[in-house]
């Protein structure tokens, strides 16, 4: 091989390899347009970077909340039925001190969103990106300001005639009941420590054990054992392990209880697969009414089943509150009929 062709080869090899990583190395991917960035970059930081301009009143928030949120959260954000409560457990003193006293004394009855959260931006960001539960990202910034104003009024942080806006939200932050309740003095942040501009103590563990091997203590102190109800609360444990191998699952339900526990019916499977069970319980309201409530309301109407079939297919709103039931055009008519008949037969 001549010197000339060697150098050609060298050039070719260089051309074929790409620097491990550097700006625009690969010619892969394209620049995001400003409209694209605007459409997706919706996060709001604790210093309100990213917060859209806008405003909303407590009253408007009350109306929106009743319409879009109350079915899960209760009219006053107090419900513990579907999600943990949003509001409650904070006092005037907490607002003044910036620490929720119930956490300090240890006797807080229920951790609500407003007892925990230190940063109001967090709540704004989350409502805007993820709420309502079944229609996330459908709220406008003004709606979010209004709903948040309503929460703040429920938590007695702002008065009834308050209008929350991008202009005064920083002032409201100064009244958040748990604003001084967070600590970052721990060793569980995997980046730079606080003294180098990061978070925490640089990975120093707070709990220490030593690897003793022999005669490490004189007695074994049992702190807690499995309560009886918990032994059976997870169903038949014998059926949650193989029927061969070195051990067996322990039989926790006697034969009669196991026999009495019905297998999942094909209708229940269909209802789950079709998404019905995400919003309706058999005996309880979730987002929509429980099947028991539906049956109780319509059972005396002669054409109840056929009317309900039409309703499931087309969707509806208003009968059970303002949260709409989406249309279910994707389901086969025969399946809808089967499901409605099943609901009227007790949804077993």
């Amino acid at each position: 091989m001549s010197r000339f062709s060697k150098s050609i080869l060298l050039v070719a090899l260089c051309g074929a390899s790409v620097a491990a990583s550097a700006f625009d190395t690969y010619g892969i991917g394209r620049q995001a347009t400003p409209a694209e960035v605007k459409a997706w970059d919706i996060d709001v930081r604790a210093d309100f970077k990213g917060l859209p301009k806008g405003s909303g009143t407590v009253q408007k928030g009350n109306d929106l909340f009743e319409e879009k949120c109350a079915s899960c959260h209760g009219s006053f954000g107090e419900s513990n039925e579907v999600f943990t409560p949003l509001v409650g457990g904070t006092t005037k003193d907490d607002i003044k001190n910036g620490r929720v006293g119930g956490f300090v004394s240890g006797d807080i009855p229920q951790r609500t969103t407003f007892t925990k959260v230190a940063t109001i931006s967090t709540v704004w960001d989350y409502i805007y990106r993820a709420m309502p539960w079944t229609a996330p990202k459908s709220l406008k910034p003004d709606d979010v300001y209004a709903i948040l104003a309503y929460f703040l009024n429920l938590a007695e942080i702002v008065p009834e005639d308050f209008t929350l806006s991008d202009q005064n939200i920083a002032e409201v932050q100064k009244k958040m009941p748990n604003r001084y309740g967070m600590s970052t003095d721990h060793g569980m942040w995997p980046g730079a420590p606080a003294k180098k501009g990061g978070i925490g103590n640089g990975g120093k563990p707070d709990v220490k054990n030593v690897a003793c091997m022999k005669n490490c203590k004189t007695e074994v102190q049992i702190g807690s054992t499995l309560p009886d109800y918990a032994r059976t609360a997870h169903g038949e444990l014998a059926d949650q392990y193989r029927s061969f191998g070195p051990v067996r699952g322990t039989r926790t339900l006697d034969g009669s209880a196991a026999a009495a526990a019905p297998a999942v019916s094909p209708e229940m499977e269909l209802a789950t697969k079709s998404g019905c069970m995400a919003c309706h319980g058999v005996n309880n309201k979730i987002v929509g009414p429980g099947y028991n409530e539906v049956v109780a309301r319509y059972k005396d109407q002669a054409d109840a089943e056929s009317r309900l079939v039409a309703k499931v297919k087309a969707g509806g709103q208003g009968v059970w509150g303002a949260v709409p039931m989406p249309p279910n055009g994707h389901l086969a008519d025969a399946d809808i009929k089967k499901l409605v008949h099943w609901i009227f037969s007790g949804a077993k």
Binding site: R99, F103, V104, K116, M182, H186, W189
Partner: peptide
């Protein structure tokens, strides 16, 4: 300070503070 690092995934300590950004 997103929802899952300011409302959830915060560790309540005996002194009533919540540890934030506990990740490891």
């Amino acid at each position: 300070a997103t929802k899952d690092e300011a409302v959830h995934y915060i560790d309540l300590m005996p002194d009533g503070t919540h540890r934030q950004y506990t990740s490891i």
